[in-house]
Amino acid sequence: MSAPAPAPAPTQRRMLRIRLSDPAAAAAYVSLLFGMLVLIFPVSFPRLLADSWFTGRLTPALIVIAGLLNAGVYLRVAHLRSAKPGLAGSAILGMLTALTLVGLMLLESQVVRAQISHVSNPQPYVTEEILAHTYFGLISGLFIPYLFLRFAQSLKRLPL
């Protein structure tokens, strides 16, 4: 009686290792899109951001946008390299995105509060501050979490 054929070994997918050039391209396109919106709608786009900031909707919206974009980039890179996205890596990425944006927006709220109390006609200046801070916050939320993840992966060889 012949021995049964051995079952094929399950293909072990390697863990995903992030390269900084992966999120850099996505962040660059978002940055260019933001710049285009500022140029095409020079009055209404900054006003929309300022209104959202004063009603408290800007920070959650930015966290959702940056979180979705980061998740999209992470999954796309995993698919392209046929690698397995780590659960810890995904969790750290999401947490760092939210922390970066919340931290920067808290900083901005301090700045705007100070400007409103010290400047006689603060509206135009505050709108510019919110516009610039939203921009830097969004790009930081797209780039800094990957930077930390990359360093964590290269220094500790963690299975992220």
């Binding site: 050039s21 850099a24 391209a25 962040a27 660059a28």
Partner: peptide
């Protein structure tokens, strides 16, 4: 890619 980011 990184230069595109810095440039943008």
């Amino acid at each position: 890619n990184l230069s595109l980011l810095v440039f943008s």
